[in-house]
Design a binder for these strands. Structure first.
Lengths: 255, 255
DNA sequence: TTTCATTGATTGATATCCAATCCTGTGTTT
DNA sequence: AAACACAGGATTGGATATCAATCAATGAAA
């Protein structure tokens, strides 16, 4: 197993992507160290990792906060995502074998079945996963990691916008993309990817107020099930928190 | 000013890219902490940053080493770089204004003058910088950072290969790329980028033995000029290193 | 009411200590 | 002599306590 700071960074990442830790939420070292029952140093290392991934930002002498990407950031992220997926599409058109196309079609089919059976949660996951599978078929780990990071950041964006529609569930887009690529119509496929993402960005309204839904402790509790072996700490916290538990703004105010 | 660990990570990165710290070189925490005169924890945080960037790898309970990318890694990195630069080329063809084209041409011209005046060092830097300028003109910070990371990794690769030719100095390629893009010949431009990179990878011979050219202390000394204020530590090290200074393999043996 | 100063809290960083793990050298056994 | 086992050293991963620097918020003074 890797280091504990990596494990904690993974949990924080999950919590952010699950929108349990919302953009602007303060990630205090002491608070997190008490939650995970580790020292502040491990937390710092975890925060460095999360910040390097673009999901948090560290301000000197102020602390770490869940990232609040701007509209400009959103456009840049989607532009980059478009670029990567278009490039992968071009590569796959040349290099992908029958087994690969079959896997893609099978994935879409599974999602179709999920939609048909009313399992919207699964359909959502499969819809988002399509892009990941798509890139994985390029058999390029470097590109996979780059793409995955971009996807994580788009997922974070979805905490800041009013999502009118589930863009990932556009089954038709995915199915048509496969069809176009197999027929060698690269230009049309790339335009579709571009339109796909442009449509999403156009729907963005980023002035939505983000307010604290959960405290970090509440947000992170579900991820600690396996490692929770110190109720003593929790009681200690309850008794030791004194008066500062009252009103706690967990949202980083815009400057 | 950012944190100390970030500054040290930057220095380590520079030293790796300058090939003063060669692939496989062990980056011991204690040794680095003595070199930079900081605590081991700061070094750990710096190493995490460098490793996240792909220039080092951390093995649990064994320590950090300068990354030794495989031939497979090299191909994937260049594939990704090709993909990104092709995508940027396509974007620039649509969106770049006259000022942008002028900047590109001016950059090539400056490199041409450097070559003409025999300043090969400057020509090298400008040649490598061309790709960076190219991507910067996309005005997409996300993509810029992604591209910069890929470039750093290719730079690391050059420590592992026998560089028969200076691929970045192919002035003609750069000039022709601009010309093609301005004329709207996207397909040809993209093929040129692909050929450019493919040519480089084909020239790679990665079974070159990497042997320790410098100890970390020697490698990092030039970067410490501004912050060097503790000769006391150095003398203490000299007297305190005892017998383990003898033969020290700085190269991580291949498994 | 505005400005300034003090105080409290948090971060950045150090030093020291301990446990776990890896590497190595030595000694023993076959 | 070769293979194995074991013990010790060295290094990493981590905890804890402590201190300085900085930010934020409160309260006092003009």
């Amino acid at each position: 197993m890797s280091s504990r700071s990596q494990a904690i960074a993974d949990i924080l990442t999950r919590a952010i992507l699950d929108r349990r830790l919302v953009p602007g939420c303060k990630l205090g070292e002491r608070e997190l160290s008490e939650i995970f029952n580790v020292s502040r140093i491990v937390i710092r290392q975890a925060l460095i990792r999360v910040a390097d991934d673009g999901l948090a930002q560290i301000e000197r002498n102020r602390g770490a906060f869940v990232a609040r990407p701007s509209m400009q950031d959103a456009m840049e992220i989607y532009d980059a995502l478009t670029l990567v997926e278009q490039g992968v599409a071009a590569q796959l058109m040349d290099r992908l074998g029958p087994a690969g196309w079959a896997e893609l079609r099978q994935h879409v089919e599974r999602q179709r079945q999920a939609v048909a059976s009313g399992n919207h949660a699964l359909a959502d996951v499969l819809g988002a996963e399509f892009h990941t599978v798509f890139v994985r078929l390029s058999r390029n780990k470097v590109m996979q990691e780059m793409h995955a990071q971009l996807v994580r950041r788009t997922t974070l964006l979805r905490a800041l916008i009013t999502a009118d529609f589930d863009y990932c569930n556009l089954l038709d887009d995915h199915a048509r993309l496969i069809e176009l690529l197999e027929k060698g119509r690269l230009k049309q496929a790339m335009d579709m990817i571009d339109a796909h993402h442009r449509q999403v960005v156009r729907g963005y309204i980023m002035d939505r107020q983000v307010f604290p839904e959960l405290t970090p402790r509440e947000a992170l509790e579900p991820y600690l099930l396996n490692a929770g072996q110190t109720p003593e700490i929790q009681t200690k916290n309850k008794t030791g928190e004194k008066g500062r538990t009252g009103v706690h703004t967990h949202v980083h105010a815009a400057k």
